[in-house]
Design a protein around this nucleic acid. Structure first.
Lengths: 174, 174
DNA sequence: AGTTTATGTCAGCCTTGTTGACTTTCCAAG
DNA sequence: CTTGGAAAGTCAACAAGGCTGACATAAACT
């Protein structure tokens, strides 16, 4: 009985019950099940249009940073250029994304959503935000702060950069 | 300017800043980047063995519920039996999983990890727990409670059942 | 002029999901 | 005892979306 706190030895310190193996396992499963819920609604919508999660990711980050380059998108998404290109090509062909040759550096392509692309983005993000909003509302502001704190710690360091690069926030105005 | 709180109209109520569209978008990206980190370490290990994430999921839930049936696993993982069967077959062939014919109902197969399977499970979950532990420790117990509260709200209702079916917990012993 | 960078593209491979069709086993109800 | 249906397994075919490797082009940099 009692708590196994694998790894570091800790001398029966009271306040570390949240680091027991069982608590960690629960955290792991929470991530697994929650991520499924998190993607479920957009996935349903995407299916109607014949797109997949990869298209959603591209659309999301182009919308977040209009005019972003292919290279920047690659470093955010962490896939190969061949993989991204396949997705991007269909989005351009279908008229959801516009690829503009760079002005200062003509090698670069700057990506923008067309009105049609922006419309799909709105549909997708609305569905996802609805679920997130319900979860946030039911859990309360304190929980939301904790949620974000833990997730931020869970990211790879180089991804945290992309996450913090916008919004930043810091204090929530307490 | 000011906060757009899409969806429900709310009369400038102070305490709902955490429900602005921008906060929700930040939450969405936090999930995206964190899930990548969450799976990164196991993915690296699995690659060495020639397995994928699907194998990890099967191993995890067989370990959590030894003797579980294929059908139960299917409802937890939410994939088709063909998909699961392909993964399960390789795990059985490779001697990581044992599939025992049911005693009471001989149609059912009860799944167990072999010592070899348990060893891989340990290696995988240790890597994943290490990251989770570091995130929990850096964020603190309050944040962990919030993290779990939000994730639980984000799950589909029928998945919450699988999540709560073990551990349960409720209070963290305040 | 030569090198590096940004992008695109072709070809082929793998994992992991899907559907559909079919079989075997075996419990349980008629 | 027979039969219906559930549980499990299998085969085949397919698609999405990862990957590697090789190669092409244009532009920028040195």
């Amino acid at each position: 009985m009692g708590e196994r706190t694998s790894g570091a030895v800790m001398g029966r310190s009271e306040s570390l019950l949240f680091l027991t193996d069982d608590q960690l396992r629960r955290g792991i499963e929470a991530m697994f099940f929650a991520y499924r819920g998190f993607t479920a609604d957009p996935d349903r919508i995407l299916q109607e249009y014949g797109y997949g999660r990869a298209h959603h990711r591209a659309i999301h980050f182009i919308n977040r940073s209009p005019g972003t380059t292919v290279n920047n998108l690659l470093s955010i998404l962490g896939v190969t250029k061949q993989s991204l290109n396949r997705v991007l090509r269909t989005l351009v062909e279908d008229g959801l994304v516009e690829s503009r040759v760079g002005v200062r550096d003509k090698r670069e392509r700057h990506l923008h959503l067309t009105p049609k692309g922006a419309a799909l983005e709105r549909e997708l993000s609305e569905a996802q935000r609805n679920r997130m909003r319900a979860a946030f509302r039911n859990a309360g502001p304190e929980a939301v702060a904790g949620f974000r704190a833990v997730l931020e710690q869970m990211m790879d360091a180089d991804m945290r950069r992309h996450y913090l690069d916008n919004g930043e926030g810091g204090d929530t105005g307490t």
